[in-house]
Structure formats: C-alpha cells, structure tokens
Amino acid sequence: MAKERKAGEVVALKNIRMDNKKEGDGEAYAYLLNVLAPEHCSPATLDAKDPVQRANLVLDLAELMDCKRYLTPKDIVEGSTNLNLAFVAQIFHQRNGLSTDNKKISFTEMMTDDEQMFREERCFRLWINSSGITSYVNSLFEDVRNGWVLLEVLDNIFPGSVNWKQAT
C-alpha cells in the first residue's frame, strides 16, 4: 500500500481525506504532520512499511501537537470518513501552517481606513470610466454629486432603463 518515494521527491496532496482514504496507510497524514510540526517529525513515520504502524506513529505525532487521541490506527487504515475528517479538523485547529511572523504582514493589513477608502474610491472610479459612458470621472465624490454619471452608468448596464427626456 505504501508507495516508495525517492529522496527529496515532492508529494502533492490534493485532498487529504480522499488521499488517505484511497491509500489507507496514513501516508498523507505523515506528510501533513511533518510539514505542520517539523519539530516533532520523525523519519520513522514515513519509513514505516506497515500501515497500522505508520498510523500509530501519526497518532503519536498528533499527540505531541496536543491533539486528543480519539482515533485508532484501525480508523486511519480503514479510512473512516467522519473520524478522519474530525482528525484533520483537529490538526488544523492546533496548527494551521500560517505564519505568525510580523515581518510578513500584507499591504492591506497595514493600510489605514483613509487609504482603504481611497483604494475603494479609485476602484469604483476606474470601473465607471471603463464602463463605456461618455462622461469621465476624475473625482468620484465631485463628479457623481449631481447623479448624471450614475444615470449614464445605469443606462449603460440596463439599456433603456433611464428616460433621458425626463433627466435634467
């Protein structure tokens, strides 16, 4: 059941629940736990040939991460859907793999409310200008104040929705 892996081979897990259920040997869990908790990882987990032994080592690794042990090696090997899903949820609850490094804060998290408002205004203004209307919007708040531009956009999106004879 266990696949032989070459040294340094990259393993892609598309759906851990289905990968584990298909293989039934806990190999997907072993790779996941080795990535999420490298300080607890052991090469013996991936080297184990017996699926039950590997599943037991996976559960030992999970215990080191403070995951409660309500799953048995047999549940992993047999691919018990609900128990394995709960196990994956518990693993990601303890370790989600997201960085807590403060140096890697995204640009949007550093923006103040004024900068976000400017960004939204700019996006809306660009959307209006790209909608194919005849008017050009330089300043959203000033140029849209009388509503004419909004009528043009509305008529462009839903042709015939504006009665231009009544618009002033």
Rank of each mutant, 00 (worst) to 15 (best):
A28Q: 06
G24F: 00
I105E: 10
E39N: 07
G8P: 11
H93V: 00
N129M: 05
G147E: 06
C41A: 13
S42M: 14
S161Q: 05
M65C: 14
A7L: 13
N15K: 05
A30W: 02
R54C: 03
S99W: 11
D50A: 01
M110T: 12
Q90K: 02
L59R: 03
M1F: 03
E4P: 04
F124V: 12
P159T: 10
L46I: 10
L150F: 04
F124E: 04
H40I: 05
L61P: 02
R54G: 03
K14W: 13
N34R: 09
D47S: 08
H40K: 06
T81K: 08
L61A: 02
E142R: 11
I76M: 14
K103I: 10
V58W: 01
G79A: 01
F87L: 05
D113I: 09
T81E: 14
M111W: 14
K3I: 09
L59Q: 03
A55I: 09
N34G: 15
K68A: 09
A44E: 14
I91W: 08
F107Y: 11
L59Y: 04
K68W: 01
T81Q: 09
V153L: 14
I128F: 04
Y136W: 07
F158N: 06
D66A: 03
S130D: 10
E78K: 07
A2P: 00
L98R: 15
K6F: 15
T112H: 03
V137G: 00
T72I: 02
L154Q: 03
V153T: 06
N96C: 09
C67F: 12
F118D: 15
R69W: 01
D19H: 13
L13A: 10
N138T: 04
D50H: 02
K68I: 05
A44F: 02
P43K: 09
